[in-house]
Design a binder for these strands. Structure first.
Length: 425
RNA sequence: GUGAGCGUGGCCUAGUGGUUAAGGCGCCAGGUUGUGGCCCUGGAGAUCGAGGGUUCGAAUCCCUUCGCUCACCCCA
């Protein structure tokens, strides 16, 4: 055989039945936390007009520039598989006139995201995020709320040892001046920095602070910090946020070199990182994007949100024991046929059980009784319902309790009731 | 895009130049008459990722290629 002819595309993964419980556990916890904060779920399309992601000159990031899956459909239109969730939600906000709803609008979603990157630990070409967005309120209290939501969810999930990093990167009023200072600072030392940083100096100066090269570290340490060069309004916002975070008792750390990959972010940026791995394995990243809605053609509207990487969370999670004792599982019946001629009756029996809300499946046909029972225990059935000519004649079934190895003949009308009694015993 | 490591049946692994590639898990069957989980026996399943080369002879050495993994980069 060798390698199978087809494999899942590079950087993608199947979520197999055995992992589903973990995913659903996260989704349930996230949905509950979001609901507790008054957020409503939204789902947007997997692909969007390519132009949604390649806005405004100078606003190009690496991701939209070269990490995007873009294609032309048969009608000649260009679409992009969403590389992030915010733009689609903002598009929906505008398209459906959500500015006429009570503001702010609080939304959350589970998305699969696509980026053409080289796969690596914790990095995939298709990955999943919990996304949260609040649109229509610029108050720092909302920033605090969004950060709190992320943090409380992580608490609920009992992910230990996390660090919450926050920073402010200013807004169009103060950032240019700050970036100018940063450029000036760096240009004096241009020959001391790495090649990437020389490029960043030109195209994306804020990212200079994010460089991991050893040679750049001394320079970063002495670099002017954005949070120290905020304009009056940004400074006020920033100080209010810090006050709110303290009031909430969130253990935040100000990280003045924290920046964002997307350019529409303003003011608040934050990130939650696990104990090991540092920023490269960020579990949750977000920030304010007061310029985005306007960039998409709407009236100036503030927004803030975060993305939480499901794969990365799951890796950090100590998952609750699936086999915790105590609670009795709901009944699961395997219908076993003794003789090929009763298979039709077996089907009717299974159908009847399902109609009564009981999980029922047929044992593989054409196997010996022994083999069918072996199957029943292999799939963790709680019961086997055995049907042979005798039972059919009497309108009954032999109901076997797999755990107890005992069985008794039960009239077919009484089966569901017997199983219900077993479940509540 | 750059660099490194690895590729043996569904999964894990043995085998580092020499007869029909070995074992464990899993799967299927049987262990007498309509009965599971343990145990026993048997069976199916691999041209050793692919292609080429060296050699009398290669899963084992060399080259190429594909794939996977890790790191850089970037991010969730």
């Amino acid at each position: 055989m060798g390698k199978p002819q087809f494999q899942s595309p590079r950087g993608t993964a199947d979520i197999l039945p055995g992992a589903q419980a973990h995913w659903r556990y996260f989704e349930a916890a996230a949905s509950k936390a979001a609901a507790r904060f008054g957020y409503e779920r939204i789902d947007t399309p997997t692909f969007e007009d390519a132009r949604l992601y390649v806005r405004g000159v100078g606003a190009f990031t690496d991701i939209v520039e070269k990490e995007t899956y873009t294609f032309q459909d048969r009608g000649g239109d260009r679409f992009t598989l969403r590389p992030e969730g915010t733009a689609g939600v903002c598009r929906a906000y505008l398209q459906h006139g959500m500015s006429n709803l009570p503001q702010p609008v609080r939304l959350f979603y589970f998305n699969n995201l696509f980026r053409y990157e080289r796969p690596q630990a914790g990095r995939f070409r298709e990955h999943h995020q919990l996304g949260v967005e609040v649109i229509g309120d610029s108050d720092a209290a909302i920033d605090a709320e969004v950060i709190e939501l992320a943090w409380r969810l992580l608490e609920d999930l009992d992910v230990g040892g996390l660090t919450l990093l926050v920073n402010s990167i200013g807004d169009p009023a103060c950032r240019p001046a700050y970036v100018g200072k940063l450029r000036e600072y760096y240009s004096r030392a241009e020959d001391e920095i790495c090649r990437d940083c020389r490029r960043r100096l030109e195209r994306n100066p804020l990212r200079l602070l994010d460089c991991k090269e050893k040679q750049c570290q001394p320079l970063i340490a002495g670099a002017p910090a954005g949070a120290d060069h905020l304009c009056g309004l940004c400074l006020e916002h920033w100080e209010m946020l810090l006050g709110f975070l303290e009031a909430l008792g969130l253990p935040f750390t100000v990280d003045k070199r924290l920046v964002r990959g997307f350019d529409y972010y303003t003011r608040t940026v934050f990130e939650i990182v696990p104990p090991t791995g540092g920023r490269m394995s960020t579990i949750c990243g977000g920030g304010r994007y007061d310029g985005l809605i306007e960039e998409l053609g709407g009236r100036p509207t503030p927004g803030i949100g975060f993305g939480m990487g499901v794969e990365r969370i799951l890796q950090e999670l100590r998952l609750p024991d699936a086999g915790r004792a105590g609670r009795r599982p709901s009944p699961k019946v395997v219908v076993v046929h003794a003789g090929a001629d009763v298979r039709g009756e077996c089907m009717r029996l299974a159908a009847g059980l399902r109609a009564d809300g009981v999980a029922a499946l047929l044992a593989p046909s054409g196997r010996s009784l022994k083999s069918q029972l072996r199957y029943a225990s292999a799939v963790h059935a709680t019961h086997a319902a055995i049907l042979g000519a005798d039972e059919v004649a009497r309108g009954s079934a032999s109901l076997r309790d797999m755990a107890k190895s005992g069985q008794r003949e039960v009239s077919r009308d009484a089966l569901a009731a017997a199983l219900a009694a077993w479940a509540s015993a």
